[in-house]
């Protein structure tokens, strides 16, 4: 049951809604689902005795015990593969990667086995595992620890990829992920774990493939000037940019895609039909990125509605730098987004 949403922010509003942290919202989703379904277990590095490297699983060992909240050694390929076997047998694993950067050493399991099992077994065995963890630059973590994996992994059929941008979605999307019979990658942002937002107390599932309009209205008296499309943490930069541009009378639709696979291309086209301009903000590198995919689909399905070529704001096309100022400029940010919107409008 989806609660009503705030008309401005699309945030959920329901009885019992309180302000909690993004990490608490993730924890609530896992705990509520684990109470409902004994087949679910959580495994990952430091998830149990340490209470989570980022305190997402804090207290879960106390509630569910060591047979269901399981510390794994630093052995990503091993425990990712363990989850594949366990899921095929009939359990519902949640695997926490401390960082999606570390998922690269588990690439064979999560890209070769997880998404292909249903197909290569001719429909005999699926692989309902939720892999989740921090995705994206955490804050001066350097080149190897700052991966955003969505562009690379979204290339592989068989996976679903969710990227929450706020606490309420963190809970609702993860709930959907856990209940899904297909494998889901839930990409969370370390930089957002302490961000607070309104989150309903009860359990609720946000359907995949349904974007949320964070700024602008579907039924506004005046069409917006530009469509901003993003997912995950950069949605918040888009909202900042839109609010700043609004002071100059430039109105933006901000579409939070929530999931990149499935991708709610229908909502994007609906918005572009009214704005005739689109800027895609993507925290991956530009070459063969999610922005590339969105813009391709917009050209395929909405070319005639465009008054300006589609624009993209990606991370800069270099390895992630360490220095604070370089990293800040490397990432998509409000200034880059505002400049792109102004470029599309010619002002």
């Amino acid at each position: 049951m989806i609660a009503t949403t705030d008309p401005t922010t699309s945030h959920l509003i329901a009885p019992g809604t309180r302000e909690i942290q993004f990490r608490e919202a993730l924890r609530e989703a896992m705990s509520q689902e684990m109470r409902r379904d004994p087949r679910i277990f959580l495994m990952g590095e430091e998830v149990a005795q340490y209470n989570g490297a980022y305190k997402i699983s804090q207290g879960m060992l106390d509630e569910f015990g060591p047979k269901r909240i399981i510390d794994a050694p630093i052995s990503e390929n091993g425990f990712a593969g363990l989850a594949v076997g366990a899921a095929m047998y009939g359990l519902r694993p949640i695997i926490e990667f401390m960082s999606w950067s570390f998922s690269l050493v588990a690439a064979d399991q999560i890209l070769n086995n997880v998404p292909k099992m249903l197909y290569m077994s001719g429909g005999q065995w699926g692989c309902p595992v939720v892999f989740r963890g921090n995705n994206g630059a955490g804050g001066q973590l350097g080149s190897t620890h700052s991966w955003t994996v969505e562009a690379m992994y979204a290339n592989v059929p068989g996976l679903k990829i969710a990227i929450p941008s706020c606490a309420a979605d963190a809970k609702g999307l993860l709930t959907t992920a856990i209940r899904d019979s297909d494998p889901v990658f839930n990409l969370e942002s370390e930089r957002m774990l302490s961000d607070k937002g309104p989150v309903p107390e009860g359990d609720y599932a946000i359907p995949f493939g349904v974007a949320a309009l964070r700024r602008g209205t579907w039924s506004g008296e005046r069409n917006s000037d530009c469509t901003l499309v993003s997912f995950g943490r950069p949605v918040n930069f888009c909202i900042e940019a839109a609010d700043e541009l609004a002071k100059d009378g430039i109105v933006c639709d901000v579409l939070d895609m929530r999931t990149v696979r499935p991708l709610d291309i229908g909502s994007i086209i609906d918005s572009v039909k009214r704005t005739n301009r689109i800027v895609v903000v993507d925290q991956c590198w530009p070459f063969a990125s999610i922005a590339t995919e969105v813009i391709t689909q917009v050209c395929e399905k909405g070319f005639d509605y465009l008054d300006h070529q589609p624009l993209r704001v990606n991370t800069e096309d270099v390895p992630t730098p360490y220095a604070k100022n370089l990293e800040a400029e490397y990432l998509p940010h409000k200034g880059k987004i505002m400049a792109a919107v102004r470029k599309s409008l010619g002002r």
Partner: peptide
């Protein structure tokens, strides 16, 4: 690659019996 799966099958079988 199948060795991790075999381990996971054993994990699930033990979980089924124990949990």
């Amino acid at each position: 690659a199948q060795t991790a799966l075999g381990t996971g099958l054993a994990f699930a079988a033990r979980y089924e019996w124990e949990v």
